[in-house]
Design a binder for these strands. Sequence first.
DNA 1: GCATATCGTTAAAGTAGTTTAATAAAATGG
DNA 2: CCATTTTATTAAACTACTTTAACGATATGC
Lengths: 193, 193
Amino acid sequence: MYSDSIIKNFRSYVDFQQKELDAFFDLAHYQKFKKNEMLFESGPGSCPFILIKSGCLMTYFTGEKDFIHVIQFGIENWWTGDLNSFMQEEASIYSIKAMANTEVYILGKKEFESLCAKFPNFEKYFRILFQNSLVSHQKRIIRNISFTAEEKYLTFTQNFGKLELILPQKYIASYLGITPEFLSMIRRKLAGR
Amino acid sequence: MYSDSIIKNFRSYVDFQQKELDAFFDLAHYQKFKKNEMLFESGPGSCPFILIKSGCLMTYFTGEKDFIHVIQFGIENWWTGDLNSFMQEEASIYSIKAMANTEVYILGKKEFESLCAKFPNFEKYFRILFQNSLVSHQKRIIRNISFTAEEKYLTFTQNFGKLELILPQKYIASYLGITPEFLSMIRRKLAGR
DNA sequence: GCATATCGTTAAAGTAGTTTAATAAAATGG
DNA sequence: CCATTTTATTAAACTACTTTAACGATATGC
């Protein structure tokens, strides 16, 4: 259940002591999900904060005509969830689904706050985590406002690599903000057909 | 030079002691900019981290054919800058311009780290700041992938209110990821003409 | 306060991306 | 392993948005 990869990742941000990491594994709830299982469904309950040990999670919301808008794909060592719902303990419109067999550590709000309050290193860790996440969100916004659909897709393949192979194309299209039909055309064109 | 509004804002996130706030005002560099003055120009130097006391700053980068892509409009109590450039002390492609007479507090990397290291409250403050910023960036991404141009514009007017009146429309259009010509048509349609 | 550049508006033509619909391919479940 | 559902492909018609260009309105500097 303990994970070298997760620990290594923690320590790449902050110089954690063993007892601090122990506290995390103590407070976090380890859980496995099979491919296509739901980890969280939108609704009145607040969304947990999730660290992915292995596998892949998709965070999305459902819009008009049951259309699924994909907000994020999360992979190994990524945190995911609805931060707003988590922090404010409000209802969430997001849902989270396992796109592959997935292992996670789930944090509740109390546990999160307890970690931050007890260990300045965790406060620092999350500060840096959010800071880095902010940078990548900003980059995604830049792509959204200045890239063509083809450029967005090419960036996706660069950023997510092999993940593309296991994800249904309609969700990739949704993540990019284009239709699956158009993504299909882009891929055909890029394949030189 | 000290600002009640800024202090009030600091304290809305974290219960700061006076000496902590004093340390901030001590380390930060207060500066005034006239409308249309450049606060930072893209290039090899790393971008500072800026807290706006009053006025309005526009963060943007220049793309092909000198086209300006607006990343953010910042107003009173907002932080702005190129977080990536700031944290990694790398060159920035961003530039920052005053869209109105503007007062700011500018933080350097060393000063930022010194605040975080000395005062856990500042570490916490920035953690919450980045956390909230992340939530609004995520919302903006959702708008980008799921809203029409008209819906994006309406959200902008709701979010920024009076600011719209002082900003050249071509920059609003750029921020929304549409052409100024199309924004002009949207506004005419909304005005019922 | 005039000259000049910049910005905003309008309209026509063009295009990137959507919609619809029909068919093919692949995944899922009993 | 077959039946059913879901997903991907393709193509034609469509539309939201862009491009270009010309003109009018505003701002800016000398």
